[in-house]
Design a protein around this nucleic acid. Structure first.
Lengths: 304, 304
DNA sequence: GCAAAAGTGTTAATGTTACACCCATGC
DNA sequence: GCATGGGTGTAACATTAACACTTTTGC
């Protein structure tokens, strides 16, 4: 365990802090919820003609106390004895970031012993998707310890090893979080799938980690993976869009999440049934105005 | 809360049992894992010619103590302070049913307050898939409190209500679990999806429940739903198959899970890339022998 | 006029659905 | 011979991928 020499508001070093903590007081684990709040933002336009580039952003909070003091963590907190996990997630998000009424889904529950140096903690992670109007709420407050980081998660190595009665598949991801005003956060995440006979186990490991608290780096990698697969067969992407949007904006959101370029004509045909056109257009764009659309929440019905 | 008049091995009624329990002793919830172990079994052949019908079975355990004494529950138990959730799930399964080395995945974490009348309990559910050789292990032991129940979960009503800025979608499912020697377990489960503006929440409710302990009826309904969707885009179905199988057997497994009939020729084309043929054949079948196949665990590679 | 993006059309390849047909076995 | 399932072929239709082309704007 890497102990931090920085002191907290009570003047304790991390060593002192952990010694003051008595983990054996409890025979039950603590339960927390962690929130992964994603949004998509526009970058500066290069010139009057070009469209702004998009970035996928994740909300992180700077830790003010041990452990991992000064590092960045996912927003979240302890579940109260009388609230459900979902209620805790909604409450924490509102308390820490003042965001409410957004899309949220349960992702995964992380329960390894030793996740937290203080005591046994089990965390259920929730993924939330916000449209970029929520981005402004927090970004404007410069004193806040909550910041949006632009996220990238790139596969850079894949390795399959055959064993006696199965195989082992390793994927290595490079995770980077950056925010103009802050130093870069990064991690190398290893995703391992072990197949032995009928048994099959997938786990994540953090091979390298800079300034991301706890095991949050692997939770982030897991969430991005889930976002990538779910965007293909559900309508979750629309939770990242404003009320009115152009089809090119929608395509850009798919492109940054999937990390590929898509063909315009094909993309439009594929998403056509999920949107409704309006009579409004963008203007002053430096090129042909484009029609604005809104999400058609009844698209699933139309199949039957 | 429905209190049961039956007494446990200490001669307590449920009322007495709950009064002896002091929930305020703790300021932390208990954490358990629940296992949903599915398998597929062959029924009796009607005559020398016909193929046996298949049934989807779920492993349940009869409760010997309050609460819900005498009712049936999912196997599972408390997570120890030094083991991960996955380790707890593997250990509990081994302890309660002697099954090991099978496919397992985390499903969902259930954390509503009031799930258990004793104290606050948070349960992470795992789905395990076993081939039917595991079925025999337990079925032979008639004294055991663990039994395989044949499961059916049928949608019988769907209702969409439009609200001001969203909608509410209700689906009603009839869940029935049956085992020749035991009385039938059943429940009516309501799945509700509420969309209000950007927020979207899905929850399950138990409208009616016979002999299924705790909120396990909705966990079962949730697991079956997951199984149905995952069988379409992954290879999990093969975890329910023996080492060697015929394509018709494989098709039957898809059919009972999806609860539809499939066309033979099309099914074979769709699954062709996931299986490898052997030189072996079935015999004494009362009709043309059929070729045996095995799972081709490398099918995903071939796409690239 | 021209850069940039909006928006549409076409074709080939591929996948899906529904149905028809023949084959091999045990009794 | 016949019931039962094993196994294959085909035509209609739908979906996807790749590319080419036209239109509209601000400066």
């Amino acid at each position: 365990m890497k102990l931090n020499k920085i002191v907290n508001s009570h003047g304790q070093t991390e060593e002192e802090f952990l010694q003051a903590y008595n983990p054996n007081k409890y025979d039950r684990p603590s339960v927390t919820v962690d929130m992964l709040v994603f949004t998509v933002t526009d970058e500066e336009k290069k010139n009057y003609r070009t469209l702004p580039e998009k970035e996928l952003r994740l909300l992180m909070i700077k830790r003010a106390d041990h452990p991992f003091i000064g590092q960045w963590a996912l927003p979240g907190g302890f579940v109260k004895m009388d609230e459900s996990l979902g209620e805790a997630a909604i409450r924490e998000l509102k308390e820490e970031t003042n965001i409410e009424n957004i899309y949220m889904e349960q992702l995964y529950t992380w329960g390894d012993a030793g996740r937290d140096p203080r005591t046994r903690i089990i965390s259920t992670s929730y993924m939330a998707l916000a449209d970029s109007s929520n981005f402004l709420v927090i970004a404007n407050d410069d004193a806040s310890d909550a910041k949006w980081f632009s996220v990238k998660c790139k596969l850079f190595q894949e390795q399959k090893t055959l064993t006696g009665n199965g195989y082992k598949l390793c994927k290595m991801f490079n995770l980077t979080l950056s925010n103009e005003g802050e130093e870069e956060l990064s991690a190398v995440i290893k995703k391992v799938k072990v197949v032995e006979g009928r048994a099959c186990r997938t786990y994540y490991e953090i091979s390298e980690c800079n300034n991301i608290a706890f095991d949050h780096a692997k939770i982030i990698a897991y969430a991005i993976e889930r976002l990538r697969t779910k965007i293909e067969y559900t309508d979750i992407a629309f939770n990242l869009m404003p009320e009115l949007f152009t089809l090119t904006q929608l395509q850009q959101v798919y492109e940054i999440i999937l990390d590929t370029e898509l063909l315009k004509a094909n993309f439009r045909r594929k998403t056509a049934h999920m949107v409704t056109e309006t009579n409004e257009f963008t203007k002053d764009a430096g090129h042909r105005p484009s029609k604005l659309y809104r999400f058609n929440s009844n698209w699933q019905k139309e199949n039957e």
